[in-house]
Design a protein around this nucleic acid. Structure first.
Ligand SMILES: [Mn+2]
Ligand SMILES: [Mn+2]
Ligand SMILES: [Zn+2]
Ligand SMILES: [Zn+2]
Lengths: 145, 145
DNA sequence: TGACAGATGCAACTGGGTTGCAATATAATT
DNA sequence: AATTATATTGCAACCCAGTTGCATCTGTCA
């Protein structure tokens, strides 16, 4: 069973409705190969035959995030992007300074996974670290041509 | 000579005017101990006796950024924050999930400074890395009380 | 098929940020 | 000190992602 059906089954099992909008947004996210913003999602949903109001999209993204099925990717350009929750592995992002395109990337070793360093940060800053985000900025292949 | 005067002198030397708004925004940034958003800056400027239009603040921040005197800090909550350009050392940020407060933090070793790993990312992703950003999310001291 | 609760559409709103243009203030010149 | 050139500022209107209240609709199951 593919990811899309796993998600639909899980939602149904949880007592949630499988509405047109919900199925379409999940399909769009499953087919995406990079995080998408709500405006993009609206267009993509329309392109597969399901036009929905933006309010619905924002509410659905919030819902799927709450279900732990979708992750929010904040790049800092004022647009919230969403991707299917990465399974198991933890990854980071490349952000193009020219076109704002976002790609996913895995990193060998990251401070965010180094218990000793996190511990040191928590002690010296009096801050409880629960998560981290690492982004590399630069130029994507297309913008370098 | 303190940082504030160094900046004013540098700007004057560059042929730029030392206006009320410019002096006030620089003072506010110099006195800040964490990155500030434009709305905060407007209030702080008013509190030291210099009320300015928001347009001026946005334009001035853009100007100071262009001069390399101020750095933009994007946390992803839809608010652009600014801090005095860190001198020499490179640092990262702690972001509170509750109150969105931002603190600066230095890290022993970060992937972003590991030439080997950056090189590997550039080759496998066909992406030219020019910069990176590392943020730790969690709870600040105040929000944990 | 009916009914209920969850989901949706709509319209109005919020707030950070931008833009064009006219008015003003800084700093060099006379 | 008055004059001038232009960098800087204020204003008003605008942009756009995201939010909210409420009436309406629809998926699901009895
Ligand atoms: Mn990591
Ligand atoms: Mn670093
Ligand atoms: Zn690009
Ligand atoms: Zn906090």
């Amino acid at each position: 069973m593919n990811r899309e059906n796993v998600i639909l089954t899980e939602l149904k099992g949880g007592g949630y409705r499988l509405t047109q909008a919900r199925k379409a947004i999940i399909q769009v996210l499953c087919e995406a190969r990079a995080p998408l913003g709500a405006p993009d999602i609206i267009v993509l949903m329309a392109s597969i035959g399901t036009s929905v109001n933006k309010t619905t999209v924002y509410r659905e993204l919030e819902f799927l995030k709450g279900q732990g099925l979708v992750a929010e990717v904040l790049v800092g350009d004022g647009l919230r992007r969403y991707e299917l929750m990465p399974e198991g592995h933890h990854h980071h992002h490349l952000v193009c300074n020219e076109c704002s395109a976002v790609e996913c990337v895995e990193v060998e070793s990251c401070v965010g996974e180094d218990v000793r360093q996190i511990d040191h940060i928590e002690k010296t800053s009096d801050f409880k670290v629960t998560d981290h985000s690492l982004k590399f900025f630069g130029l994507c292949a297309r913008c370098r041509l």
